[in-house]
Design a protein around this nucleic acid. Structure first.
Lengths: 141, 141
DNA sequence: CAGTATCCAGCTAGATACTG
DNA sequence: CAGTATCTAGCTGGATACTG
């Protein structure tokens, strides 16, 4: 009985792949920063509302206004996940009504610095990517 | 008639956000590299099968074997999108059966270099992220 | 060997309504 | 002000079968 089904073989290959993925830090980092709003929130907390200033705490409503278009659900969900991972700290001041502010931790600041490198590459090269894409589209269409 | 519905206001905010997203190079780059297999293919072509060598062309079947668990659909789809964006070149040699090899372009190599910076951050800090996450889980559960 | 075509499950994120 | 809860559309990616 040496026969294996395609399903079994795929399962084995997938298990091997999953094991690799599970220990690949780069992949985990991409999972962490590739949410639709993660980079934007990091940028807002790390560079201020104009994306060119210094890191500073921001309130929930301030983030909500700045990231026009984000739903309350996604803002809360993303902030919670960043807080969970120690990238953002959440501070509640018991005024009436309550005041909540969010701020990058040291780890979050470090990530924000790394993201600036990513941003630099993007600003230098993404135009070329999109020119290539447009050209390809015209060539094949 | 100055009244606007919630839907209209959201639409305006979303349009503003979309406009921002549409011109934000970083966001576009994240969209580009955050597919499940993009980073892995880039790493394979940029650092060889052992993820520690030099860039070299690889054949479709070689990539398929290396990235155990990837479906043919996703391998083809991801390679095509990378080719479309000028990050990977596709070379067909008309043997029988046909031989196809993929190689990073200069632009792709440049992206691969940037990804190594990302990888460095990941290897230095992702452990801390996951410790935080585990701690948070135990605190709230 | 190197694909293409089709169908489908699961997850992400948006809309909407409600609350301490 | 700063959330929570629910419902759902759409997109990503996997399984499977077929082909020049």
């Amino acid at each position: 009985m040496t026969a294996t089904t395609a399903t079994q073989r795929t399962a084995v290959a997938t298990a091997g792949y999953d094991a690799f993925m599970a220990i690949c830090p780069s992949q985990k980092l991409l999972d962490r920063i590739s949410g639709k709003w993660v980079a934007l929130i990091l940028a807002a907390l790390g560079s201020g509302p104009d994306c060119a200033g210094d890191p500073r705490p921001m309130r929930y409503s301030e983030l909500s206004r700045l990231l026009a278009g984000i739903s309350q659900k996604m803002l809360t969900q993303t902030l919670r996940s960043l807080e969970r991972d120690g990238l953002v700290s959440r501070t509640v001041t018991p005024t009436v009504p309550v005041t909540v502010s969010y701020e990058l931790t040291d780890l979050g600041l470090s990530l924000h610095q790394m993201m600036r490198g990513l941003k630099a590459w993007a600003e230098t090269h993404m135009d070329e990517v999109f020119v290539n894409r447009a050209t390809y589209e015209n060539t094949t269409a």
